[in-house]
Amino acid sequence: MIVPSKFSVDVAISAYGKPYQTAVTLFSLLKHSGQWIDKIYFVEERKQPEPVDFQFIYDHIGSQLIHYKPFFWFWYNKVHSSFQKFRPYRQSIRYQYGWEKTDKDYLLLLHNDVYFTGDLVGEYLRNIGEHTGIGKIGQCWNCPAFSANMCDGKNYTTYRPDYQEIMNLSNQFPGPRSHKYADVMKADKIWPLPECRLNEYVAMVNMKYARPATVPFGKATPIGVHNRIDTGVEWFYMLNNAGHTFTHFDYEPYAIHSWVSLKNAGHEALFNKELYQYEESVALQCLKDEFGYQV
């Protein structure tokens, strides 16, 4: 077990809308785990769902926060590997700016709709060991192998079906993305399964192992790429097959993702203005009640 040291972790967060939820994410993180955090790489996505002002967050956190606005906005579109040598293109990928700029051994990856209730970073540091990453593993709620009680995030390394078995399970336990599996799986190398990933919305990466293996230094596509089912799936697939290991850690005693409504992991609010405004109003009240924020 690693003995945590102060200021041994940097943070990479991409902010797409939700200024008040973004503030709750960072303020609650620093409240519980501030002793481990050095720099916060705050990426304000080039396109926003509505006019947004994050300045109050920059003012509150101060020089600890490094602001960056990328040249490109990918959303969930394909990121072409042939262009990843071009730094402004590559550093527009989610988390990539902080990934390349950090000088710390550990990088915490965050969505901007997380509420921290305890010292998750300290727990991650104490439990990551020699693994390349720590956090919840797998989008198991979508996976037919999980529905069939064959696999989960804790034992994904031991369940290694062949192509036909997973396709049969997909027919027996169809999920929302089962129709995509045939297009993203290699018939001779399907493991890890298509829904397997280190869930990057609140995860920590050991940069000593991950950086040399990942673009621009290694062969693995950046973790923020969305080319294979979901964000981080392709990176996770490539690193597992290169011999890297990951440890499953249930963050829920220490953090809540999409904490306001728990509805579709916060994604639906980006397409529903009424829901978006409701969630932001709840976050604003939290800022007032817990952090003394004054509009």
Score class of each variant (00 low, 15 high):
residue 253 P to Y: 13
residue 174 P to V: 01
residue 57 I to Y: 07
residue 102 T to S: 04
residue 78 K to S: 12
residue 86 F to C: 05
residue 117 T to Q: 11
residue 145 A to G: 04
residue 63 S to K: 11
residue 220 A to R: 03
residue 187 A to S: 09
residue 141 W to R: 08
residue 179 H to W: 10
residue 125 L to G: 00
residue 225 V to K: 06
residue 77 N to M: 12
residue 48 Q to K: 14
residue 273 K to Y: 03
residue 62 G to R: 07
residue 62 G to Y: 11
residue 130 E to G: 00
residue 193 L to R: 00
residue 51 P to G: 09
residue 75 W to T: 11
residue 251 Y to I: 13
residue 119 D to G: 05
residue 263 K to R: 14
residue 54 F to W: 15
residue 224 G to E: 10
residue 76 Y to D: 14
residue 222 P to V: 07
residue 281 S to W: 01
residue 46 R to F: 02
residue 164 Q to G: 11
residue 166 I to T: 06
residue 99 W to E: 09
residue 283 A to L: 10
residue 236 F to G: 06
residue 81 S to H: 13
residue 139 Q to V: 08
residue 133 G to Q: 02
residue 10 D to T: 06
residue 136 K to T: 14
residue 217 F to S: 09
residue 166 I to M: 12
residue 69 K to S: 15
residue 107 L to Y: 02
residue 184 V to N: 08
residue 276 Y to W: 07
residue 269 A to C: 10
residue 61 I to W: 01
residue 241 N to M: 05
residue 287 L to F: 07
residue 45 E to K: 07
residue 92 S to H: 03
residue 14 S to K: 07
residue 146 F to M: 11
residue 246 F to S: 03
residue 45 E to D: 15
residue 192 P to Q: 03
residue 33 S to I: 12
residue 249 F to D: 11
residue 135 G to A: 15
residue 72 F to G: 13
residue 151 C to N: 02
residue 160 R to Y: 01
residue 293 Y to G: 00
residue 272 N to Y: 07
residue 138 G to W: 06
residue 128 I to N: 04
residue 127 N to Q: 11
residue 127 N to A: 00
residue 128 I to Q: 05
residue 149 N to A: 15
residue 189 K to E: 15
residue 227 N to K: 02
residue 147 S to N: 04
residue 285 Q to F: 09
residue 183 D to W: 03
residue 190 I to C: 09
residue 156 Y to P: 05
residue 37 I to Q: 11
residue 161 P to Q: 06
residue 159 Y to Q: 05
residue 89 Y to H: 12
residue 128 I to L: 03
residue 90 R to S: 03
residue 174 P to R: 08
residue 282 V to S: 00
residue 158 T to C: 07
residue 83 F to S: 08
residue 221 T to F: 13
residue 200 E to I: 06
residue 169 L to E: 13
residue 274 E to C: 03
residue 160 R to M: 01
residue 39 K to D: 05
residue 244 H to C: 02
residue 51 P to F: 11
residue 163 Y to E: 00
residue 152 D to Q: 04
residue 101 K to F: 02
residue 187 A to W: 00
residue 106 Y to G: 05
residue 243 G to K: 04
residue 11 V to D: 09
residue 117 T to C: 06
residue 110 L to C: 10
residue 41 Y to D: 00
residue 125 L to H: 06
residue 181 Y to F: 15
residue 183 D to H: 04
residue 107 L to E: 01
residue 3 V to Q: 13
residue 85 K to R: 12
residue 47 K to E: 15
residue 220 A to H: 06
residue 91 Q to R: 12
residue 291 F to G: 13
residue 24 V to S: 02
residue 204 M to H: 04
residue 278 Y to K: 04
residue 256 I to T: 14
residue 254 Y to A: 04
residue 227 N to A: 04
residue 15 A to E: 01
residue 36 W to R: 06
residue 143 C to H: 07
residue 40 I to D: 02
